[in-house]
Amino acid sequence: MFYSSFLVVLVLMAVTAPVALAFGFGGALAARSTFWPLRMFGKAYTAMVRGVPDIVFFLFVPVALDQGLEYLRHRIKCPDWTEPVRQGNDFVVCAAAKLPLSTSPQWWHELYGFSLAVATFSVVFGAFAANVIYGAMQAVPHAQLETAEAYGMSRRQVSRRVLIPQMWSYALPGLSNLWMILIKATPLLFLLGVADIVYWARELGATKSAIYAYPHPDWRVWYFLFLLVFYLGMTRLSETVLGHITARLSRGQATMAGEAQRKADT
C-alpha cells in the first residue's frame, strides 16, 4: 500500500500537469481576448490565486465541486423534490443524486475522491499557469507580431504561427518553476482525504494506528525522512530534465540564452 501510494502521487502529477497547462492556456487566451466578458473571466481567473493562500483553494474547491455536482444531479434526477437543499447546517440531496452512490463499491469512492483531487489541482495550477503564459505572451517582442500583421496574416494566424511558438521559450522558466511547485504541493493530497504517501507514512510508522497495532516502535520519523529524500530526488531529477528542455528551446531565440548558445557554436 505504501508503495502504491507513490504511484498515486506520480499519476496525480502526470495527469495534473497537462490538464493544468490546458487550463492555463485557455485562461491566458481568454485574458487576451477582445470579447469583454471573456477577457474579464480570464483576468479574474488569473488574479484569483494572487493574495490568497493556495490551501484555502485546496480546501474550498473539492467541497464546492462536490456540492455543485450533487446539486446538478439533484435537479436532474429528482425534479419533484420540494424541500430546499440547504436545511440549516445540512446539505441534503436525494439519495439518487448522491455522488458517488452509497451502493457503489469502495474503489469507485476512492476513484471519485482522486478525481476531485485532480480537478482541484488542475484548477489551482491552471490559474498559476495562466499567469505565467499570459506574461510570456506579453513578452514576445511586439515587432514580431507587427511584422506578421504586415505580411497580411489575420489575428488568428498571428496567434497560431508567431505568438504561440515564440511564447514557449519565455514561458518555460515560469512553467518549470510551476512544475517544481506542483511536486512540492503533492503532499497536500493528504488534506483532500486521498490515502497518499503522507497518510501511509503516518499509518505505517505509528506504533498503534487506527487500523492496526504494529509490533515496532514509532517509525514515523524514518518514514518522513524517506519522503523528504524522495522529494529531494524528484526535485533534482526535474532540475536536470528541465535544464535540457530550456537549452533545447532557447536555440535560435533572440534572448540572452539563445545568443550565448550561438556564440558557443561559432
Binding site: F190, R220, V221, L227, L228, Y231
Partner: peptide, 18 residues
C-alpha cells in the same frame, strides 16, 4: 537545497516527529 527542494508540509511533519 534541502529546505527549498522538499515540501514544507513534509518538513512540518518530520520536524514534529523529531
Amino acid at each position: 537545497f534541502v529546505f527549498r527542494g522538499s515540501p514544507l508540509f513534509i518538513q512540518f511533519f518530520l520536524a514534529y516527529e523529531l
